[in-house]
Structures are given as structure tokens and as C-alpha cells.
Nucleic acid binder design. Structure first.
Lengths: 136, 136
DNA sequence: CTTGACTCTGGACGTAACTCCAGGGTGTAG
DNA sequence: CTACACCCTGGAGTTACGTCCAGAGTCAAG
């Protein structure tokens, strides 16, 4: 049978994290308590893999595990509002961040240019003009 | 005289960090070793304040202190190229990140909508559809 | 000369998010 | 029955970035 129970190493490999991390997430209640075999081995449903991927995705975008927990425990109406608030907050935060990044991007790009032309013109005794005038 | 030496508490206050943090940055060589009074007190130049602000700014945008150190130690031609590479790398990273954020933003905004209409229509027994279909 | 605000050092502590380890059990193939 | 890969738990260790503390010195004002 190909229907062997989905055990932790498998889940870990498929979702790109370590088995330790899977157990860690379970402890933090980011994953539901997995059921066990008679021998005590955890048994996962394939949903767990998706869930871990979701966690990783959200994490890359700056959500903390605690916030992600908030996103995952969505049940009734009350929680729905709570999730909505969390999302709303994160959205404005992200807009803010994107704006800042664009501005800093421009600054860095400019320095990069200066760097390059400095190298082209002065070659050996070029000195980078990074940091100066970066303030506002 | 208004020309009292710029000491650590002052620098800290003006740059919005704690004195501990200033000393910490000095240890990490993110700030030059401050000179000392006869009594052993650090004496800073106003440039230090700018530098700390720069560090904080870069940090908000996801640079680690180690990377920032790379941005700050810009001297001759060799370092210039090194800085250029660092910036180049960070720029593509930022572009990547901005793209991802925009995508995730859309996903979250959609969920937010669903959340809202769910609340409007089903009121009390609304249940949030967050997490499902978020994969890719 | 005393007071009070400020500074010094070295090292311990704190948090997030893991990561590793010892000592032991499970399960299956040969 | 013996390997051998895999799993279990509890707890210690790690990295990044600070923050706090004790015990002691500095300095300007009164």
C-alpha cells in the first residue's frame, strides 16, 4: 500500500523545514496536535504541509510566528473581526514599508551610480561617497 | 561656552537610541572608537549622530548590523566595489520582496473582503475563510 | 567637600526562532 | 533476531540585537 501514514520526516521534507521545526510549531500551536500511532509516532494530514508553507510565506513577509498564529486560528465571527483587524494593520504597515523601500532604493541606486562613475574616473584612488547626504 | 564635549547620553538622546546601544555599536565597530576625556568619558563628533540615524534607517529596511557595517566601511577602490556589490544585491532583493509583498497584499485584501461580506451576511455565525486557497 | 547626575566596565539576562543532543523506543527488511 | 533508519522527550545551546546591573569613577554646582 502506498498509504503509509504521513510522518514527521516526510512532512518536514515536503514543506522545506526540519523535523525539529515541525515539532516546534506544534508546541507553539501553529499546527494542530498531530494524532499518534500506537507507538507514539505523530501522524499528519496533508493539510499540515500546506499550513507550514503558509507559515513560511507569511514569515518571509515579516509576520512573526505570533501574528501568524492569529491568522490561523480563525473560527467564529469574533475571530473573524480580529483577523480582519490584523490584516488591516498589516496592510497599511506593508504600504508604509513599500514606500520607504522605494525611497531607500532610489538612494542606494544613486550611490551605486556614484560608486560606478567614481571607479571609472578615478580608478585606483576612488573613494566611495556612501553614507554622506543620506540623511533625509 | 556651549562647546561642552558631546558625551554619550547626549548622542543617544539625539539619535533616538539608548546609551547601551551606542556602546554596543561601538563594540561592533559600527561607530569609530570614540576618543576619551582624561577621566575616561567618551567624546563624540556630531557625525556619530548622523551615523546612528543612518544605521537605524537601514535597519528598518531589513539590513542586518553586519551588512550595515559593510556599507559603512567605505574607503578605497576595493571597498567601493564591495559596497557596490552589496547594494546591487540588496536592490534585487528589495525588488523581489516588493513584488512578493504586492502579491501577498492582494491575497490579504481579498481575504479581508471575504471576511467583511461574511460578517455582513452571516453575522453571528460567520466563519473566516482565511488560509484556504492561499497556497500559490 | 558633598551631592547628584552622568559615565565607566564586564558580564548576565531577555526574546525570537530555531537547532542540537542524549538516551531511549519503533518498525521493517533480511 | 539483528540492523538500521526513523521517531520520541526534555532540555540545553545558538544567533541577532539589544537591555540591565553592580560596583566604581567623574564632574559641575553649591
Amino acid at each position: 500500500m502506498e498509504n503509509s501514514p504521513l510522518q514527521i520526516g516526510n512532512v518536514a521534507a515536503r514543506s522545506g523545514v526540519s523535523v525539529d521545526t515541525v515539532r516546534y510549531y506544534e508546541r507553539l500551536e501553529l499546527l494542530p496536535q498531530a494524532s499518534r500511532t500506537s507507538g507514539g509516532y505523530r501522524v499528519f494530514s496533508p493539510k499540515a504541509i500546506e499550513q507550514i508553507r503558509f507559515i513560511k510565506q507569511a514569515q518571509e513577509l515579516g509576520f512573526s510566528l505570533d501574528e501568524i498564529k492569529g491568522l490561523l486560528t480563525s473560527g467564529g465571527a469574533e475571530e473573524c473581526e480580529q483577523v480582519r483587524d490584523l490584516l488591516q494593520g498589516k496592510l497599511s504597515e506593508m504600504d508604509e514599508q513599500i514606500k520607504k523601500m522605494k525611497a531607500f532604493r532610489r538612494i542606494l541606486a544613486k550611490h551605486l551610480d556614484e560608486c560606478d562613475s567614481e571607479l571609472n574616473q578615478n580608478g585606483q584612488n576612488a573613494h566611495c561617497p556612501v553614507l554622506f547626504e543620506i540623511e533625509k
